[in-house]
Design a binder for these strands. Sequence first.
DNA 1: TTGAAAGCGTTACCAC
DNA 2: GTGGTAACGCTTTCAA
Lengths: 359, 359
Amino acid sequence: MFRGSSLWCGDEPVKGATIHDVARAADVSVATVSRTLNGLETVAQGTRDRVLRAAGELDYVPHSGARALSTRRTDTIGVLLPDLHGEFFSELIRGIDLAARARGLHLLLSSSHGNLAEAEAALRSMRSRVDSVIAMMPNAGEQPLASDRHLGVPMVLIGSNGAADAIGSFTIDNFAGAFAITKHLVSSGRSRVAFVTGPADNLEASERLRGYRAAMRSFGSTEWIVHGDFTEESGRRAAAHLTHNDTPDAIFCANDMMAIGCLEALREAGGSVPDDIALAGFDDVPIARYVNPPLTTAAVPIAEIGRQALECCADAIGGGDAGGQRSFQPQLVVRASTSSSSSLRQDHSRPAELGETGS
Amino acid sequence: MFRGSSLWCGDEPVKGATIHDVARAADVSVATVSRTLNGLETVAQGTRDRVLRAAGELDYVPHSGARALSTRRTDTIGVLLPDLHGEFFSELIRGIDLAARARGLHLLLSSSHGNLAEAEAALRSMRSRVDSVIAMMPNAGEQPLASDRHLGVPMVLIGSNGAADAIGSFTIDNFAGAFAITKHLVSSGRSRVAFVTGPADNLEASERLRGYRAAMRSFGSTEWIVHGDFTEESGRRAAAHLTHNDTPDAIFCANDMMAIGCLEALREAGGSVPDDIALAGFDDVPIARYVNPPLTTAAVPIAEIGRQALECCADAIGGGDAGGQRSFQPQLVVRASTSSSSSLRQDHSRPAELGETGS
DNA sequence: TTGAAAGCGTTACCAC
DNA sequence: GTGGTAACGCTTTCAA
């Protein structure tokens, strides 16, 4: 009944040995091989040695599909991101990967390109391939699928506002970060602070806007809002727009890439940062400290978030109930783009814990 | 004999429906369901409709492990990179992902942190989970495992010099790129061109060094070599070293990050780029155009390489023999860091096809 | 301590 | 066209 796997030993391709091959080589039953390799139960020392040797010689690797079929576990975590492009996601993936390899888990990666339908399809097709999922879907109205029930496996969300019945959710306190940046701008003497928004349906973006408004209100300053979409180009456009009409003395962009676009447009227009206009971003992507002048921004511990999200996933499949709604505080990072009196060497600092702001 | 899967219909978790559930709901055999869902053979229109409806209602997703067991295919490509950190890999992954989603393939990601043992372990554990592998292992002496025979699945290499019996290999013509950069430096009037190397055991790095030397020799200039390791910090050290003794009038770093380190160190030391010293890097990572002055470099089509590597993998598992040794030509990108007479707006260009250089 | 055998959810071959 | 059923490679009772 058993069809021996084709195990050629010459210079020909070795199609992976099966547990049966190992059993035969060690002269034991497959059950014993399984027990030995899984460290289960007590297996006689001599038997164990024979099995281990046989497995080693045959370079045996269990078939994960078969194992998944029996155990209902894949030792794989699915990761669904809006995009794989750019420094933010690169950082996030790194954090996730770090934790995953520490736990011996595999990572199944997928991107949805901000498209809800694609995201749902990706999640569906992941169902049987992963034990758990880390997903990031920053657009409003994407909650419906954020459900263990719909997905079939526990899921942890990053950056969404704790939707549906996800097992856990890791968010950035965008409100507090934006509040702190605005406060920094105002308290360093800027009175006309403009804000460049992110995409209208993006949750993070609207929280940042909210933080800006709250701060402006609390300082009795007048709001000044220009629309952007998180792209460098939109930052450039915003700058053009802002310098065309009445000019602000500070621009706070909802993310770093827009701030960088702003910076270039301002430079081209002959404006001086920070002397004429102070400039701040959000995220502290690596580029932020390399532009000239280095960019003041709110740093979010991206990799750390990824790491914790994975830990949460791992705990969840272990049966643990380690879920929860964890919110990370961004740190205000003041660089030369907002402070003219800066020495040249302050570029690499990450100082100033964020001040309290409520919410 | 068949144990119905637990398909609770209340507010309780629905543990994925199986093909048996669908068969029962549609009142047909599992074989028919399988045929219908795989688009195989002819299934009567009415039957097909019933099956499709049942599958839809039950939100049926085939169990990939079971399928892999029968078909010996996982529809997954493994990706093994030295690191997941930084713009280069981010770009590469993006290209791979793009092609993968176009083909409906999943991506299993793993990083080896430059450690050969880890890489081998990762490759082993991928064996049964993927149909094919894309790997990048830039260190010399890592060839041994680059083998279909050892791995069990076809594999395509990126950036290694076409080792072992990989099905395909995608490399960058580092020699030509370095030659072109050096030539550009010399022909724009620089006579004392220093080179900052990458890690000694890195294949790409040594090819770049070779290109530099060949160019210097061909122009009758004297070589001037300082050691680095691809990190920004090593670039900074190299600059300090170079300005301490006799100072060159051009520095060519084996990658962009070192050039950026150089740039900062030079700026701090009060040197002017490009007036006193011209500066060039290699890779054209996104940051390169944001630093001040923007960096002259050799652009490699990173995402495109990833895309083609994946296509190659996909073809390989399709039985096609689309392998081969493809080498990509870097493009010389001249920016302000090497040409003082530059207008402010040239930052975003990607001009100048690379000149022929032999090899 | 070990072996036999029943699944796990699919696909594919062979009858009808 | 359709249904029955033997694999696929592994884990896990249940006996011995």
